[in-house]
Simulated assay, not measured.
Amino acid sequence: MVKYKLITKIINEAYPMDLLLLADPSETLVKQYLKFGECYVAELNGETIGVYVLLPTRPDTVELVNIAVAEQYHGKGIGKKLVLDAVQKAKQQGYLIMEVGTGNSSIGQLALYQKCGFRITGVDKDFFTIHYEEEIIENGIACVDMIRLAQQL
Rank of each mutant, 00 (worst) to 15 (best):
G77V: 11
G77M: 11
H131P: 10
P25M: 07
K89I: 14
G94N: 09
Q114Y: 07
Y52K: 00
T121A: 01
R148N: 13
T28L: 14
K91R: 15
T28V: 14
Y95A: 07
G46M: 08
D18I: 07
A68C: 06
I107R: 06
Y113L: 07
E71C: 03
V53K: 01
E63G: 05
A90T: 03
Y40T: 05
M17D: 09
V65Y: 01
L20D: 00
G108T: 07
E63K: 13
D18M: 07
A90D: 00
I67S: 00
Y40A: 02
G46K: 11
E138L: 11
K125S: 12
K3S: 13
A42L: 12
S105F: 04
H74I: 03
D24I: 08
F128A: 09
I49G: 00
E27L: 11
R58D: 15
N45I: 02
L19T: 05
Q88D: 14
N66S: 09
Q88I: 02
E99T: 12
C143A: 15
K89S: 03
I11T: 08
G50L: 04
G79Q: 04
Q72I: 10
T61C: 11
I130M: 12
A150T: 12
I137P: 06
G50T: 04
R58W: 15
Y132N: 03
E133M: 05
L84Y: 01
S105R: 04
E99D: 09
I10V: 14
L110N: 06
K115V: 05
V123G: 03
F127Y: 15
Y95E: 06
P25E: 07
K35Q: 14
I67F: 05
G75T: 13
I49N: 02
E71P: 03
G117Q: 06
I147C: 14
I49Q: 02
Q109G: 04
M17E: 13
I141Y: 12
E71L: 12
Q93N: 14
D126C: 12
T129C: 11
R148G: 05
A150N: 14
L84W: 00
D18R: 12
E138K: 10
I11F: 04
D126R: 13
G77N: 10
E133G: 13
G122V: 10
Y4K: 00
V62S: 00
N45D: 15
V123I: 15
L44N: 12
N139A: 13
M146F: 06
S105L: 10
L84S: 09
E134M: 10
R58A: 14
K80D: 08
L64C: 01
T57F: 02
T121R: 08
D24Y: 09
Y95V: 05
N45G: 12
T121M: 03
I97H: 10
G101M: 04
A14P: 07
L110E: 09
K81A: 09
V53C: 01
V123W: 00
L34S: 00
L110M: 15
T57H: 01
L96M: 10
D60W: 13
L55Q: 07
M98Y: 08
V69W: 01
I107T: 12
K76S: 10
D60V: 08
E27T: 09
P16H: 02
D24M: 07
V100F: 02
